Simulated scan of single mutants.
Amino acid sequence: MDDAIAAVLGRAQGRAREGAYGYCGSLTPAEAWAVMEARPQAKLVDIRAWQECALVGHVPGAFEIEFRRFPDWTPAPEFVAEVSARLARGDLILLLGRTTGRADEAGRVLAGEGFRQVYIVLEGFEGEADAEGRRIVNGWRQAGLPWYQT
């Protein structure tokens, strides 16, 4: 691993220590993209409900595995089983939600299930809302990172 990516992951791990996350760390969208480019074996898991992805957009190459279900946001009972079927416990996993909340929760769940390299993407796909409720403040899309709409 090159020094720049080691530094990025070190910052992410420092955030985890400060916040007592229970998983490895948290990355900004730009940091997550840098890790993905430098470490092609890293797995981006988009945990949004399929309706969110369909309406708002997808990230190319991401594993789309729902953590909670729309409209009542109940936990998806097969979440851990689906992640386990697609990814190994030692894989470098980056979790992307709408914002940060569900990714944090999913990160804690996966870490509790023995996944050892779990990071979340801060701000999520859409990011925080501005004063008018528009999600244009930050996030994956606002960072200009790859995404598409179907």
Rank of each mutant, 00 (worst) to 15 (best):
M1K: 09
I5W: 02
I5S: 04
A6F: 11
R11D: 04
R11C: 00
A12Y: 00
A12P: 01
Q13M: 11
R15H: 13
R15N: 10
R15Y: 13
R17D: 12
R17N: 12
E18A: 13
A20Y: 11
A20L: 13
G22T: 03
G22L: 02
G22D: 06
C24L: 11
G25E: 05
S26R: 11
L27Q: 00
L27G: 00
T28E: 09
A30H: 14
E31H: 02
W33F: 09
W33E: 09
A34P: 00
M36C: 07
M36D: 06
E37I: 11
R39P: 01
P40A: 13
P40V: 10
P40S: 13
L44Y: 04
D46F: 04
Q51W: 14
E52D: 07
E52T: 02
C53I: 11
A54N: 07
A54E: 14
A54T: 05
L55G: 10
V59Q: 06
G61I: 00
A62I: 11
F63T: 07
E64K: 12
E64M: 07
I65G: 06
I65P: 02
E66L: 11
R68L: 15
R69F: 07
R69G: 08
R69H: 08
R69P: 01
F70S: 12
F70A: 10
F70T: 07
W73E: 13
E78G: 07
F79Y: 08
F79D: 09
F79S: 08
E82F: 03
V83N: 01
V83S: 01
S84V: 08
S84P: 07
S84A: 15
L87E: 01
A88L: 08
A88G: 14
R89Y: 09
G90L: 11
G90R: 14
G90F: 11
D91F: 09
L92A: 04
I93R: 04
L94P: 07
L96P: 02
L96I: 02
L96Q: 04
R102Q: 12
A103W: 03
D104V: 11
A106Q: 06
A106L: 05
R108H: 13
R108L: 13
V109A: 10
L110M: 06
L110W: 04
L110H: 01
L110P: 08
A111F: 02
G112I: 04
E113K: 10
F115W: 00
F115S: 02
R116H: 06
Q117W: 09
Y119T: 00
I120E: 14
I120L: 14
I120Q: 15
V121R: 03
V121K: 04
V121E: 03
L122E: 12
L122T: 08
L122H: 06
G124T: 01
G124Y: 02
E128R: 15
E128D: 15
A129E: 15
A129S: 14
D130Q: 07
A131D: 14
E132T: 08
R134M: 07
R134G: 06
R135L: 05
R135K: 12
I136Q: 09
I136R: 14
I136M: 07
V137N: 05
V137M: 10
N138Y: 01
N138L: 07
N138G: 06
G139Y: 07
W140M: 11
W140I: 08
R141P: 03
Q142L: 13
Q142R: 15
A143E: 14
A143V: 02
A143S: 12
G144W: 05
G144Q: 09
W147M: 05
W147V: 02
Q149T: 12
Q149P: 01
T150V: 13
